[in-house]
């Protein structure tokens, strides 16, 4: 115990990122996997000579080989290539949706917490309504109502993610509002909107950041789930969920078709979850210890 205290004081000057990675190898693993996926998808045109949507009927259902590492699908598209391009979509959409939901939820939550009263009541009842539904059911309902495409799937996922951020930001705001520096800012004459954006949100943000990193993996899965159910990205877009959706019908005959996109999905969401846990340990050392 005392030795540990000692090392931690000595290594305080060390870059905190590397320090945390050393103490948390799982997070490091998550980062490594994520970086690899990102690089692969970024340089997909250099890595693969195939096009993700180019149909080549005579090569359909080719098993994994030197030519097609992960095999081909029912119209002869290279699955490896489609996974690489699909990563852009899945990761991009996952990150964008969660960031959007985090931002909107934080603003709504801090307004709710700061002003209290009627506004707070109305906002929180609305959030309770959203939370009352199982999230996937609600996302499906929203996506189905608005029409099955990627934008609507993103909107649906954002809607089910917002309440968590509203609650987090509201709880944080309620305690910050009582802080003397916020009260002092009021006496200095600073306007409510500025107090919320400059004095409350910047100091309420760390639980939101933790939640964002934890949610990205989940959002990627949700995007894929909606794609799988035909409520998200539509063919021929190379989206992992949509690929699995078509592929799993062929699982018994052509095992590679759904397996590789499934594995990619698994890796990516695992990577984000590991990173999310690590970020929580950094920003909130009290939790989980």
């Amino acid at each position: 115990m005392s030795a540990e205290v000692h090392t931690s004081t000595v290594t305080r000057t060390v870059n905190p990122f590397w320090y945390t990675c050393r103490k948390n190898p799982l997070m490091l693993a998550g980062i490594v996997v994520l970086v690899i996926i990102l690089l692969l998808s970024l340089f997909a045109p250099l890595i693969s000579s195939y096009e993700p949507t180019k149909i080549n009927i005579k090569d359909r259902f080719a098993p994994p080989s030197a030519e097609h590492w992960f095999g081909t699908d029912e119209v002869g598209r290279d699955i490896f290539t489609r996974i690489l391009y699909g990563a852009r979509l899945s990761l991009g959409v996952g990150v964008a949706v969660v960031l959007g939901a985090g931002l909107i939820g934080t603003v709504i939550g801090s307004i709710s917490g700061y002003f209290g009263g009627r506004i707070d009541q109305i906002i929180m009842r609305l959030m309770d309504m959203i939370l009352a539904f199982p999230s996937l059911v609600l996302a499906m309902a929203v996506a189905a109502t608005l029409g099955p495409n990627l934008q609507n799937a993103m909107l649906a996922i954002a809607i089910i993610k917002i309440p968590v951020y509203v609650r987090l930001a509201r709880a944080e705001t309620l305690s910050l509002r009582e802080k003397l520096y916020v009260k002092a800012a009021v006496t200095f004459g600073i306007k409510p909107w500025r107090i919320i954006t400059r004095h409350i949100i910047p100091n309420a943000i760390s639980p939101v950041i933790i939640q964002v990193t934890l949610d990205i993996g989940d959002a990627i899965l949700l995007v894929a789930t909606l794609g799988f159910l035909g409520l998200g990205a539509q063919p021929p877009t190379p989206e992992w969920g949509a690929m699995i959706s078509v592929g799993w019908k062929h699982l018994l005959d052509y095992w590679w078709y759904p397996t590789f996109p499934g594995f990619a999905l698994f890796l990516a969401s695992c990577a984000f979850n590991l990173i999310g846990d690590g970020v929580r340990d950094i920003l909130d050392p009290k939790a989980n210890r």
């Binding site: 003397l180 006496t187 004459g189 600073i190 400059r198 004095h199």
Partner: peptide, 17 residues
């Protein structure tokens, strides 16, 4: 507030952002 009437608090340690 601020413009006409200002206030100084007891705890300077926590009165600043």
């Amino acid at each position: 507030r601020g413009k006409e009437i200002g206030m100084v608090f007891q705890e300077p340690m926590t009165a600043l952002h």
